[in-house]
Simulated scan of single mutants.
Amino acid sequence: MERALQIHRVSVADQVAAVLRQRILNGELRPGMPLQEVPMAASLGVSRNTMREATRILSLEGLLKRNAHRGIAVCQLSATDVQEIYSLRRMLEIAAVLGSRSTEIETLSELQQTLEGYERAVRDRDWTRAVEFDLQFHSLLIRFHQNRRLESFYQRVIGELRMGMVLVDRGHNDPGRLVPVHRRIYQLLTAGKLKQCATLLAQHLDDSESRLMRVMNGKSSREHRSAEPSS
């Protein structure tokens, strides 16, 4: 009996969202920058409705934020946002690791494949793809909860970190050092050393939050200095 073919159709809105996503993650569209849907739709040769759907997709991913009075803009994280997101990550990811089982072969296999993709992206110095693999690795950990609603919730939370993590990886003295940490988390997980794995994961999340806060603080300081009138 032949297996049914899976046909994946990509809408025009999905394609537009992909273009905007890349522009956001590579820094062309900066945090806080307002987006004018009509001119942008015209520049891409699509209708306003298509552009609105594309921005809706990116809003769900946490990359854009719509304001009733100011329209839509690239999402800009505050220090409070970062603290709240990482607090949630610690609660969800550490509990997931402690509750994991070595019999969940499919998830462990996907973690291995994600690590390999992460290593390739870092070698190529493709920080946008590296961040996607990084986030995918942590998203896979949430599967150990075996709760699909929790996975969907986590995706919305983690989406807000994409831009910040790209900035962190670009500014890291040696981004390649981040890969062995994930590799060690995976090794401890597969070896069933869950308490050690949870401890390393907690330390990794603490370090990640600290790096992001330093990058954000440095960026804010530079923007403040550039806004000061020259004497």
Rank of each mutant, 00 (worst) to 15 (best):
R162Q: 15
V157W: 01
L194M: 11
E160R: 13
L188P: 01
M216N: 07
G171Y: 00
G176D: 07
L200C: 05
R177Q: 15
P175C: 03
L161H: 02
H204Y: 08
Q187E: 15
V181I: 14
V166I: 09
G192Y: 08
V168S: 02
L178N: 10
R170T: 07
R177N: 10
A191M: 05
L212D: 02
R184T: 12
A191L: 06
L205A: 10
L188A: 04
V166S: 09
D169A: 13
G171T: 05
A202F: 00
G164S: 10
D169C: 08
G164V: 11
L167V: 06
R170M: 09
G171M: 11
V168W: 07
D207E: 13
K195C: 00
R214V: 06
V179P: 10
K195Y: 07
L189S: 05
L188D: 04
L212E: 13
Q203Y: 03
Q196P: 00
L167M: 15
K193G: 04
A191N: 09
L212W: 04
H172Q: 01
H182D: 11
E209W: 06
S210N: 10
I158E: 11
V215P: 03
K195L: 12
M213Q: 14
L189N: 07
S208V: 03
L161Y: 03
L194D: 00
L167A: 15
M213S: 09
L201R: 00
L205M: 08
G159I: 01
L178V: 11
V157G: 02
V166W: 08
Q187G: 04
V168E: 02
R211Y: 14
A191C: 00
R183A: 13
L205Y: 06
Q196N: 11
L189W: 09
Q187K: 09
G176K: 11
T199E: 14
G164W: 07
N173L: 14
K193R: 15
N173H: 14
R183S: 12
G164N: 11
R214N: 13
T199H: 09
E160N: 08
V157F: 05
R162E: 08
D169G: 03
M216I: 07
L188S: 05
V168N: 08
M216K: 09
L200G: 05
T190R: 15
R184Y: 06
Q187W: 02
S210T: 12
M165C: 00
G192P: 10
L161A: 10
R162M: 10
V215Q: 12
V215N: 02
M213F: 06
V168G: 02
E160V: 02
I185C: 03
L201T: 01
H204I: 01
D174I: 06
D174H: 12
I185P: 00
L201Y: 03
E209K: 15
S210P: 00
L161R: 02
T190Q: 14
P175R: 05
R177V: 08
P180C: 05
D206S: 10
C197L: 04
L189I: 08
G176F: 09
H204D: 12
H204W: 03
A191V: 00
Q196G: 05
R162G: 03
L178S: 11
D206A: 13
D206H: 13
N173Q: 15
G176R: 12
R211F: 12
V157H: 01
G176H: 11
P175W: 04
A191G: 04
A198M: 04
L178A: 10
E209Y: 07
P175Q: 04
R170W: 04
E209M: 15
M163S: 15
